[in-house]
Amino acid sequence: MTYWRAAGLNYIQYSNIAARTLRRALKTEFRADAEKREESFIRITPWKDGKPIKTSSPSSSA
């Protein structure tokens, strides 16, 4: 097992971090465009029995 999976991360999270790191290392002329892809406004709420469950910490994978 890889160290990140052992620490409770999965490949999606691995990928998000890797992509973010790559974007930081681009030449300045490409960076502005790349940073647009770091935008994410989506909010995810778990539901049960037809009602949203109130969670103390909203999902944040990034």
């Binding site: 999606i12 999270q13 935008e39 994410s40 406004f41 989506i42 995810i44 709420t45 994978s61 990034a62």
Partner: peptide, 17 residues
Amino acid sequence: AANEVGRRPPTFLDASK
């Protein structure tokens, strides 16, 4: 249930979440 979708074009990060 996910919301706050549709105002901006979807990103890979949205899908990842």
